[in-house]
Amino acid sequence: MALNTPQITPTKKITVRAIGEELPRGDYQRCPQCDMLFSLPEINSHQSAYCPRCQAKIRDGRDWSLTRLAAMAFTMLLLMPFAWGEPLLHIWLLGIRIDANVMQGIWQMTKQGDAITGSMVFFCVIGAPLILVTSIAYLWFGNRLGMNLRPVLLMLERLKEWVMLDIYLVGIGVASIKVQDYAHIQAGVGLFSFVALVILTTVTLSHLNVEELWERFYPQRPATRRDEKLRVCLGCHFTGYPDQRGRCPRCHIPLRLRRRHSLQKCWAALLASIVLLLPANLLPISIIYLNGGRQEDTILSGIMSLASSNIAVAGIVFIASILVPFTKVIVMFTLLLSIHFKCQQGLRTRILLLRMVTWIGRWSMLDLFVISLTMSLINRDQILAFTMGPAAFYFGAAVILTILAVEWLDSRLLWDAHESGNARFDD
């Protein structure tokens, strides 16, 4: 018995066209964080690309023209004298008006014999932002004059995390709450300039795509075929072959399989920071003279006294001054041990922890910024005066060393310790 099946006739004509040209192939790229070699397709503007294995951002879609970056830099340069030299806060102490600005706080630190601690604050609040705007201006002028731009481009990517104007702005709020127990506070004209400078700096850093600047100024022929001998440069993120001198053909720094002496430098910085954190938390970090009496505060006791007036601000200072430094030390110690013992479990967790400490590390400088600003506000000789204690130097040095330890660690070593050939990683 035959089955009668109805015929289905399409209502619209289906047209099949042959592909007349070869589909576009992607360029081969190595991930600078996990060293995976993959094919990167062509990316349009405002599109980002991520590593298929570790999800690290390979290409950032946010990109401004150099002219727009230069305009932002010149605007920031105009704001800087007002943000640093004009009063941020006014207080009335014992019937006398006192003005506080950024430069005055750094000068008070240096004047009291601790120039190293003052230079830490100076670099993060004044030096690094000033280098940022002058570097962008150098790129703008240098591109037109045919100057060598490689050193500036190499420095810009590392400079971003040292620009800490946003953290200093939080420190202004913390210092205001600490001082309000002794005097009446009012915002100064410099505060508005400083807030504007923070906003412009944040926007500029978020749109400063150094890798795209490398592509514009020093374009290189990408690798179009897969080759395990391809290496990625950690300076400019170019994937290719080393030249005859073993250097990256684009930025001219040595092109090595792994960062040289990464573990040794990381261990040295980490152990030194552990040693410095002990006096930083045991010795007094601030000293207040009130009517001839002397009151010393460690980091913890200062947080407890701050909690009596504002528990939320005390929580912020606790996280930045105690929780973050010790968390960074514990995480980095764990990561280094996992590399030495070739741990194969929990790779995803370790990668996330490394990215976390990379982002939060700079916030530990908050305590030094609060001390710097408070020193310029309260300084009335023996009637009422505020000065920093010996722990300030140890704390600042420990924070900087932990930042350097994270920067010096080559994250690809975590993958080397893991089993080879993993296309995915999980716990």
Rank of each mutant, 00 (worst) to 15 (best):
A2V: 05
A2F: 04
N4P: 07
P6V: 06
Q7N: 06
T11D: 10
K12Q: 05
K13D: 09
I14V: 07
V16T: 09
E21M: 07
L23K: 08
R25C: 08
D35K: 01
L37A: 08
S39I: 13
N44I: 06
C51S: 01
C54K: 00
K57F: 05
I58H: 06
R62I: 04
L66T: 10
L66S: 07
A70Q: 11
M72F: 02
A73M: 13
L77D: 04
L77V: 10
L78R: 00
F82D: 04
W84T: 07
E86F: 02
W92H: 02
L93V: 02
G105K: 01
Q108S: 13
Q108T: 13
M109S: 10
Q112F: 07
Q112P: 14
D114C: 01
A115C: 05
I116H: 15
T117D: 03
V125Q: 03
P129L: 06
L130K: 06
L130F: 11
T134M: 13
T134V: 11
I136V: 09
L139P: 02
N143Y: 15
L145N: 05
L145M: 13
G146P: 03
R150A: 04
M155C: 03
L159G: 02
K160D: 10
W162A: 02
V163L: 15
L165S: 12
A183N: 15
H184P: 05
V189G: 06
V189S: 09
G190F: 01
G190W: 01
V195D: 01
V198I: 13
T201H: 08
V203G: 14
L205T: 14
L213W: 10
F217I: 14
P222G: 14
R226I: 15
D227H: 15
E228D: 13
K229M: 12
C233G: 00
C233R: 00
F238L: 12
T239G: 11
T239K: 06
Y241D: 12
P242E: 12
D243Q: 09
Q244A: 11
R250V: 14
H252C: 06
H252L: 06
L257G: 10
L257S: 06
R260K: 10
Q264S: 06
K265D: 10
W267E: 14
W267R: 09
A272W: 02
V275G: 08
L276F: 14
L276K: 04
L277R: 01
P279E: 15
P284Q: 10
P284D: 12
S286I: 03
I287Y: 04
D297W: 02
G302D: 00
M304N: 14
S309E: 15
A312I: 14
I316M: 13
F318V: 07
I319S: 15
F326H: 05
T327H: 07
I330M: 13
T334K: 14
L335T: 09
L336S: 11
L337F: 12
K342L: 12
C343I: 12
Q345W: 15
R348M: 11
R350V: 08
I351D: 12
L352Y: 10
L352N: 11
L353Y: 10
L354Y: 09
M356V: 13
T358K: 13
T358L: 10
W359R: 14
R362I: 04
M365T: 03
V370G: 01
S372M: 15
L377Q: 02
Q382M: 12
A385V: 04
F386C: 00
T387V: 13
M388F: 04
P390I: 06
F395M: 07
G396T: 03
V399H: 00
I400Y: 08
L404P: 01
W408R: 03
L409P: 03
D410I: 00
D416V: 12
H418D: 11
H418R: 11
G421H: 05
N422V: 08
A423P: 06
D427P: 06
D427N: 12
D427K: 14
